[in-house]
Design a protein around this nucleic acid. Structure first.
Lengths: 250, 250
DNA sequence: GCCATGATCAATGTCAGACAATTAAATGTC
DNA sequence: GACATTTAATTGTCTGACATTGATCATGGC
């Protein structure tokens, strides 16, 4: 792990890769302390700032944490679910936002994956999950709610559904699909009629979850997917119309 | 975006967060050039090494790329699917490897999500995807194959199935579930009999995909999930037995 | 004897200035 | 006009220093 030739990329990138491989490969175990920056600099034959840049790269991926003071240093980090969530959501949001992914593609993936949780969630959901869904539905029915708040509540409801499956790995994976949709959903302005329909479908989902009827949850999700896609299409069509009109007028 | 109080964490972390928010919030668009390190240092009233640490954090998340030379600098990166894949896989692998996630939990999540692709993949898979599956099945039937190679081939087959859905967002999301299982699968030593059974189930999947029968793909995945879980359980039980015997003998 | 207080020290966090390496553009030359 | 050279801007790296933090340990008072 101490090797470090001078051929390809930046030194700090090479060092970061070497340490990352050691962590992933199990050579460095959780909570183990890395050598001090000075020692690493010596081992790799580079300066301390270079080592520091490498460590910051790893810290950015939550692979290590650093602690100041005597007997401080860099420690291999136990990746918490929360850290993993956040990274996954950040990456997914960027991927959807910057790569010209069509709304339909993202939507299809999101609902397909969410339906994968439907059966399990209907089976295992706790009273808490159901209560959260009901509460969010009530919130969504409030008249004065902003579009952003409506979308945030939408995400919270679906998260409760996913968490209901009682499988944290699945919750983690779904976070990227469900939460990363929020910016795309925010682009849609919801009329009162749209909201009523969405609330109706959400209620179907909650009812089905309460009845522990996985198929009904799945069916409601299919309906919601279709409605969401149709809604987005009409909004985008209207927007394109406006843009065209605006440009022709100028 | 230029604000930077001295209250909470490290300066480099704050600066990285500020720039990251600017990117995610759309204030910095793809391929836009950030100010030079010297300018950033000046704007944030910090030294250049501190700015560099912040930039390296962002580079580690593929949010920016840097280019040397005149008119080089840091540019907002368009997150490629490949970069997103890799990050997702790294994070997922660590999450599964370091958090005491039970094999059953990971397995359940993985197959539940994969079944979400089954219908779409059966519908849309191209000849290429089918050919890849068939080729991997042939490889898996070779007698001399190492366990690692067998698992890698297993992953390749499932990736082909997932990619067959023709939805890159879904492929990205599934990458974390499917590929991150590989280290866990590697912990299982496959007997010749196990391999034959797995190959049989893989063949069922490929046959169903060829017939464009989504339900059959899904059913085969259910069977494969059950078999994988049983296999893991027996392997872990045998290992526990050995450990107990070994410790009592010492 | 025990606890509180301060000293110590090792480590990270930050700074300043310098030089090397690289690369695109501007300039010069044929 | 095409090609070689210079130039300037920028990142990559190094050196050395100081500030800050926080656990440990010695000191002193009770």
């Amino acid at each position: 792990m101490k090797i470090d030739p001078n051929s390809p990329g930046d030194l700090s990138a090479q060092i970061a890769a070497a340490i990352r491989d050691a962590i992933i490969g199990g050579d460095l175990i959780v909570d183990e302390r890395l050598p001090s920056e000075a020692e690493l600099a010596d081992n790799f034959n580079v300066s301390r700032p270079t080592v520091r840049e490498a460590l910051k790269r790893l810290a950015a991926q939550s692979l290590i944490r650093t602690q100041r003071g005597a007997f401080g240093g860099a420690f291999v980090n136990r990746l918490s679910y929360q850290d993993a969530y956040n990274q996954h959501i950040t990456t997914s949001t960027l991927l959807l936002g910057m790569n010209g992914v069509s709304f339909d593609t993202a939507c299809e993936a999101r609902f397909a994956l969410e339906r994968a949780c439907a059966t399990l969630s209907a089976e295992r959901r706790l009273p808490d999950h159901l209560a959260t869904m009901r509460a969010e539905i009530v919130r969504q029915a409030q008249p004065g709610l902003s579009d952003e708040a409506f979308c945030a509540s939408d995400v919270a409801l679906h998260r409760a559904l996913v968490d209901g499956a009682g499988n944290p790995v699945m919750s983690y994976q779904l976070a990227g699909a469900v939460e990363a949709m929020q910016p795309l959903m925010n682009m849609i302005t919801f009329t009162a009629r749209d909201r009523a329909e969405i609330v109706r479908l959400h209620t179907s989902i909650a009812d089905a979850a309460e009845a522990r009827d996985g198929m009904a949850v799945s069916d409601a999700l299919v309906e919601l997917e279709a409605y969401t896609k149709a809604l987005a299409q009409s909004v985008f069509a209207a927007r394109a119309q406006n843009t065209a009109t605006g440009s022709s007028a100028s």
